[in-house]
Simulated assay, not measured.
Amino acid sequence: MRDEAGFRDFVTARLAKLSGVAYLLVGDHHAAQDLVQSTLVKIARHWDRVSGVGEPEAYVRKALYHEFISSRRLSRRRELPTAEHRDRPALRDEADDAVRRLLMRQALAKLTAKQRAVIVLRFYDDLSEAGIAETLGCSVGTVKSQTHHALRRLRELAPELADLVQEQQEVRR
Rank of each mutant, 00 (worst) to 15 (best):
S139R: 06
P56Q: 04
E134Q: 10
T112Y: 03
Q168I: 02
L15Y: 11
R14V: 01
T82W: 13
A13V: 15
D163M: 14
G20W: 01
G141F: 01
R72V: 13
G141K: 10
L127T: 08
R14M: 06
L136C: 00
T135K: 02
G20Y: 00
P81D: 03
L161F: 04
R77I: 14
A22S: 14
V60T: 05
R45M: 08
R8T: 10
S51M: 04
H30I: 13
R49Q: 10
L91H: 04
Y124W: 10
L18Q: 05
W47T: 01
R72A: 13
L15N: 15
L164Y: 05
R92G: 13
Y65S: 05
I43K: 01
E57C: 01
A133F: 08
V36P: 00
V140S: 12
D28R: 05
A22G: 08
V26C: 04
M104N: 13
E167Q: 15
Q106I: 03
V53C: 02
I69K: 10
F7C: 05
V60P: 00
E134S: 14
Q146V: 07
H29K: 14
A133M: 03
A117D: 02
D87Y: 15
G137I: 08
H149E: 14
E160I: 05
D96Y: 15
R105M: 07
Q106S: 09
R92K: 09
F10K: 02
Y23D: 12
A44M: 10
R92S: 14
P159A: 03
T39R: 00
Q33E: 14
A162L: 09
Y124H: 04
R72H: 14
L25T: 04
Q146F: 05
D163G: 12
R2D: 09
R72E: 10
S145G: 07
L91N: 00
L151R: 13
L18C: 04
D93W: 11
V50M: 06
F7R: 01
